[in-house]
Design a protein around this nucleic acid. Structure first.
Lengths: 206, 206
DNA sequence: ACCTGAACACCGTTCAAGT
DNA sequence: ACCTGAACACCGTTCAAGT
């Protein structure tokens, strides 16, 4: 008792939906996606185990909310990197590549929930929509590169997916511990540079 | 009763360890990694829920066994593709790229268990070892390309990780349903070709 | 040595009941 | 409308007991 902060006029919570999301984010960060448990989230939030069902259809829906908020953060991260880059073409592309992998390494559990949980994109369309919004930052930058180089933009989408998937692959291997021999920060940076270099080479030859 | 095949002289099972693994593989294929439950595996195998603990330390250990067997199959897949390729350099590289993504798309749940389950590579060293064995097929092919082109092989490892991660990224995005607009088989093939092309370009310029 | 039966703690979900 | 309490089915793990 008396675990609720200020808004405790009755047993009503201030904004339980948001509180549950925050508690979930903490839990996932602490114990990883596997340690995410509705019961423990409720304990953290100081409510009964039945309380979340007023705000989320089920456990999966709360997980989807974590993923969606993650994609929004991911978008912010990429948008900031683009904004901070003076060069809005190739330099920006490099900045985006580093920013995306850096996001994954800095938020491994969250990244796994975003991309790795078997969440249906049909059941949760916001998942695809927010992911797509982050992707569009890359898309626009690739387009800018092509235009700056006087190339056709017909292939923008495929090319963007290409660099996007390359960075995603690096992120996933890092996050899942498969790059043990390359785990040092400097090595990862080299790997990203390699990816960007080959991609840029491809952009320029077309 | 009478669910056990031939070896039913007593209540002893023939090779329960292997039977459990097979039942697990079926279950994962049918219901995905999320639907994998020790209790249901036991039902499939026709044994009590306590039986697996004679053969696997816990649920995680059985999951690791699934992953290990998956990496062995993955290795076979890549080795076959290499063997089937007449050209053992760039042509083989292309064949490996297609084979690896094809493996992922053909065995999505298994691929997720292999790469996506939070299995500790310290706790289960065979995981890293078998994954590494599959990777070495790519490594050797990249080396062959470098040698054929008269290039230095100093950078073989980083370059191999680069194409490996690119294919992995494509596989993961496919398997997790993030390439909706590119899900058609032909589009995926184009994407892989793009990856190989940019990688080969990089190999040749060094 | 290998498996069963029973038990325990824990989780996801539902529903009647409280404010 | 929002939350609690109690209940149910289910799962992972353990352990004594059976062969």
């Amino acid at each position: 008792m008396a675990k609720t902060p200020a808004n405790n006029r009755s047993y009503h919570h201030g904004d339980l939906k948001e509180t549950l999301l925050q508690a979930s984010l903490e839990l996932v960060s602490e114990k990883g996606p596997h340690g995410f448990t509705l019961a423990e989230v409720c304990r953290k939030a100081g409510v009964s185990v039945a309380a979340p069902y007023r705000h989320y259809r089920d456990k999966e829906a709360l997980l989807a909310a974590i993923a969606v908020s993650g994609f929004e953060l991911f978008y912010d991260c990429l948008a900031s990197a683009l904004a901070a880059s003076e060069d809005k073409t190739y330099g920006a592309l490099e900045a985006l590549a580093h920013a995306s992998v850096n996001f994954a390494i800095s938020n491994p559990s969250r990244y796994k929930v975003m991309f790795g949980s078997d969440l249906s994109k049909v059941k949760f369309p916001e998942l695809y929509a927010t992911a797509r919004r982050a992707f569009d930052v890359v898309f626009c930058t690739v387009e800018a590169c092509l235009i700056a180089g006087g190339k056709s933009t017909d292939n923008t989408y495929s090319l963007s997916v290409s660099i996007w998937s390359h960075c995603h692959g690096i992120s996933m291997l890092c996050v899942d511990g498969f790059l043990r021999e390359i785990a040092m920060e400097q090595k990862v940076v080299e790997l990203i540079d390699l990816a960007v270099k080959s991609f840029v080479g491809q952009l320029q030859e077309a």
